[in-house]
Design a protein around this nucleic acid. Sequence first.
DNA 1: GATCATACCTGGAATGTTCCAGGGATCGCC
DNA 2: GGCGATCCCTGGAACATTCCAGGTATGATC
Lengths: 375, 375
Amino acid sequence: MTLAAVGTARHGEVGIAVQPPLHPGHDLDRSHARGADKAPTILDVAAEAGVSKSTVSNVVRGADDVSSATRARVLAAIDLLGYTPNAIARQFVRQRTTILGVLVGDLSNPYYAQMAQVAERAAFRHGYTTMFCNIEGAKDIALAGVEALLEHRVAGIVFLAYISRTDQLEEALRRAGVPIAFLGLSERWGDSVGPEDAQGGRLATEHLIGLGHRRIAYVRTPLVERTGDRGRHSGYRAAMRDAGLDALPPIAWAPGAPTVRYGRTSLKLSDALRGGKAPSALFVSNDIGAIAMIEACENERLTVPDDVSIVGFDDIAIAALHRISLTTVAQRLDYQAERAVSLLLERIHDPGLPPRHTSVSVELRVRQSTAPARG
Amino acid sequence: MTLAAVGTARHGEVGIAVQPPLHPGHDLDRSHARGADKAPTILDVAAEAGVSKSTVSNVVRGADDVSSATRARVLAAIDLLGYTPNAIARQFVRQRTTILGVLVGDLSNPYYAQMAQVAERAAFRHGYTTMFCNIEGAKDIALAGVEALLEHRVAGIVFLAYISRTDQLEEALRRAGVPIAFLGLSERWGDSVGPEDAQGGRLATEHLIGLGHRRIAYVRTPLVERTGDRGRHSGYRAAMRDAGLDALPPIAWAPGAPTVRYGRTSLKLSDALRGGKAPSALFVSNDIGAIAMIEACENERLTVPDDVSIVGFDDIAIAALHRISLTTVAQRLDYQAERAVSLLLERIHDPGLPPRHTSVSVELRVRQSTAPARG
DNA sequence: GATCATACCTGGAATGTTCCAGGGATCGCC
DNA sequence: GGCGATCCCTGGAACATTCCAGGTATGATC
């Protein structure tokens, strides 16, 4: 507390000049009287500055009807006492918070981590803090997490998870009536931002077709929401149809944790990628899955891209590593996260808004995991 | 609301039997009278159940002095009204929260993301929610982030960031007197958990020496806190000394963002890795740096591990990918995050505890980025 | 000098919960 | 039937802030 006063004195004489050493020695008494155990309140500051609590409140909140002399006096008192405004009390009386809940599927997955980071930053820039719940695919945890967010009366929720929403979870969210933005997904009941899945599926598939591949399979991983998966798959089918090719039956990742390690063992490649009718190219519904697929192929002594070409979706950071160099459909993760936060804040401000769904254009990034078909 | 009651009926007739259809039709009146705009409070529930607010509070908090008949009646009323306890009011009156602040350096860095995930999970398991601040190395943002956490009166802070702590930031934290645990670091003023840096440095270096390398350089990246860097570097020096080898001058990553992309261009390899006196092996102070180093080497047409062996530190998930296959010093990220949360909760419970520093043992994981020295 | 306007400040009500002291029943025991 | 114990329940105070109606100077205008 004394240090703070010194700090003030150092960086400007204004506050000090208006209000010299105020009550010399008195601060010691105060701190003894109150004890160091309790944080100073707006009333302590008011007493110290010789004004009412309302005036201190006005200063803290930046209201304009405070004379500059009074303001300086109050600021000096705040500095002296080391007062930190109590957001809990503020939230309590104003009956709303500036906290955004973030439901994130799995932070150890780079896709979500990148999204979460940008969302946090965007929220912070708008004066909101973020409360995270890592729901990791477990339905009961998700429900408990949502409950916690609702109890804390978050102003809105960013939904960033692949968990298949149960009726229970969805109903809990609807009932609470809290603004919610689905990030990385489209066509939900709240607001949403997502990539142009169908267009991406088409780009990926056309790229492979252009390289001369005829037998191209779609690989579906549990990472992708049904809606996203549907779009990507239908883009694939449309491109195949337009090229006069037959769509192959999709290869499915066994249900389970969406990690590279799991995918590597889960994908049954022996069946899918061996023999005369095996596909020479794969379009995988996301990058983590595509990387798992590369691992799985190389485990089975199939070289990528020589034996199999692979295209992913997302363009997460590690896809660009030389050693990985994954051809993929890039979606602007950062833009989407920003947009989701904007949608949320707009709805918080005006709950009457109609639901809005933003889809973000995608772009093919050709790297080394795809090569012309052989023969 | 009705659904919830049905749910109750399904898994047990007790609640329903004790309190049949209570007040049929009445719920509609209430919801109209109150209007759907305001969330029901404990008083609404009390009126509905015909008890006092204190009793409802007892039920919600799980206090034991409530008869089972009354409890059932209150629960039914809660269900009917869709009451969600107001954590803000609870925090307000109890003068403490069950929120843990997490200051995280950079969520898009897998090292932090993994730590953050486990920390969140551990906190949640103990009944705490987490408030994230992504401080990304910018000092003013870090300060504003800490301020936000303090205003929300978080019960403790997990510090998970490489940002070099300014006097200002450190003083703000000390002054606030909030319990704080440093994660991934040791030897700080609060509680801390970190890996055995010196031992790790020694293991990495001895592995390279064992492979016949003589000219081994230490590469320092801006990712690592000074303390961690010091330990790893000194472990390296000790191993070199014990083997009768000269430690080379450390190679430094230019200050800047700690990403692979940046590191790739920032590391001046032409000078460091060319010529007769160039090192044949590198020990890099963390995995992201090591991966950047692999990229940088291969950019310069140096093959890893044939031309240069590289060892990292951390064993982040992507280090294990076949395509990366980084030899590295593994530290138990999950255990550390768990431990940091435990330390924090113990201190919240008993602030008088002396500062504790846990160091976690490390273990070398040999993969494909290291090979015997040539010639 | 009365009236009005403006600038600045203040006191009180309200917010939803917890916690505590205490108050009725009911029961058992002498 | 008096007393104590136990069980269950209740009303009120307290928490730190915001917001609003109102109050008091000061200055300007007629």
